[in-house]
Nucleic acid binder design. Structure first.
Length: 275
DNA sequence: TTCCAGGTGCATA
DNA sequence: TATGCACATGGA
C-alpha cells in the first residue's frame, strides 16, 4: 500500500490494505465515531483524525499526520502479512471478510485504562463509559474531549468512576492509577513479551486478557493472542471445546507464533459479525 | 426474567 | 496450581 504524508493529511492510495470500518469496528479501539458526513473520526489522546474516502483510496485529515502514520501502522506491509496468514485454512474467510484491518499502535495509558473498562463488558457500554470519563476529566479540545492524563484522572474518586457507570471496575481504575504512570509504561517497551506481560498482570484490574490487549494494541506485540468469549467460541468451532482459557491461549499462540496478534483480529472481527 | 458482554480478584483446597 | 464465585450495568 502506498501513502503520502502531507502537511495536514495522509493520502492513502488503494483500498486493499486499509479500510476504516474494518480497522475501527474490529474491537481494538473504542475512541471513534461517525460524524454527520458519515466519515469515521478517530480520537487518540488529545489528537483527532477524520477519514474520507475517494475514488482511489482514503484521505486521513489531521493536524498531526506523523502521529497517525504511526497510529495506523502505515509502514507495515499488510499484503505480506495476509499472504502468510492465508496459509492457515481457518483464516482464509476471515481475511477475505476483514481484508482492510490494520492493528493500531495506540497510546499505552489510554489503552490500559480502556481495556480495564472493557472487562466483562460490551463494546457499546465500554464506549459510553469511556466517553463519560473523557468528558468529565479530559481536556476540552476543539470539538472533542481528550483522553485524560494520569494526573487528571488522579483527581477522580472511586465513586466518580462508579457514577460514570464503571460498576465494580471503579476500584480497579482508582487503584491502577496509583500503581503506574505513563512514564513507567513507556519504560517497559524494551522488556521481552513474557516479562512485560507479567508487569501488566501485576496491575489491578489487569488479567491475562487485558494484558494481551495492551500488549497487542499498545505495545504492538504480535506474539500474543487475547482470548475472550468470542475467541472461545471460535476455538470451539474451529478446534475443540476447551473450557480453560489459558490452554486455549497457549494452543493459539503456538499455532500462529509471531503472527498471533494479526490472526486474532481477523478471527475476532469474523466471529463478532456472526459469520 | 434471565442471560450476556473483548474477565478479574480472591477464597479455598 | 486449579476451580468456583461475586462483581455493576444495561441491552437483548
Amino acid at each position: 500500500m502506498e501513502y503520502k504524508l502531507e502537511k495536514d493529511k495522509i493520502v492513502i492510495i488503494g483500498k486493499e490494505d486499509f479500510n476504516p470500518e474494518h480497522i475501527l469496528e474490529c474491537g481494538q479501539v473504542f475512541s471513534f465515531f461517525k460524524n454527520e458526513k458519515g466519515n469515521y473520526v478517530v480520537l487518540s489522546t488529545d489528537k483527532k483524525a477524520e477519514i474520507l474516502e475517494n475514488e482511489t483510496g482514503f484521505v486521513i485529515e489531521t493536524e498531526t499526520p506523523e502521529y497517525f502514520e504511526d497510529y495506523f501502522d502505515l509502514k507495515t506491509n499488510y499484503g505480506e502479512i495476509k499472504a502468510n496468514l492465508k496459509t492457515f485454512d481457518i483464516l482464509k474467510a476471515p481475511i477475505e471478510y476483514g481484508f482492510g484491518i490494520r492493528i493500531l499502535k495506540q497510546n499505552l495509558f489510554e489503552t490500559l485504562i480502556s481495556f480495564i473498562v472493557s472487562a466483562n463488558n460490551n463494546i457499546k457500554r465500554i464506549k459510553l463509559i469511556l466517553n463519560r470519563i473523557k468528558e468529565k476529566f479530559g481536556k476540552k479540545m476543539n470539538g472533542f474531549f481528550a483522553f485524560p492524563t494520569r494526573e487528571e484522572l488522579l483527581k477522580a474518586t472511586e465513586e466518580d468512576f462508579a457514577t460514570l457507570g464503571a460498576g465494580y471496575r471503579a476500584k480497579y481504575l482508582f487503584a491502577v492509577l496509583r500503581q503506574v504512570d505513563e512514564q513507567a509504561l513507556l519504560e517497559w517497551v524494551d522488556l521481552p513479551t513474557k516479562q512485560l506481560r507479567a508487569k501488566l498482570i501485576s496491575l489491578m484490574g489487569v488479567g491475562p486478557k487485558v494484558a494481551d490487549c495492551v500488549l497487542l494494541f499498545g505495545y504492538g506485540r504480535q506474539d500474543v493472542f487475547p482470548v475472550d468469549t468470542w475467541i472461545e467460541q471460535m476455538h470451539d468451532r474451529f478446534y475443540t471445546h476447551e473450557p480453560n482459557r489459558e490452554k486455549v491461549r497457549e494452543k493459539l499462540v503456538s499455532e500462529f507464533g509471531e503472527l498471533s496478534g494479526y490472526a486474532q483480529q481477523y478471527l475476532f472481527f469474523f466471529m463478532r459479525a456472526g459469520l
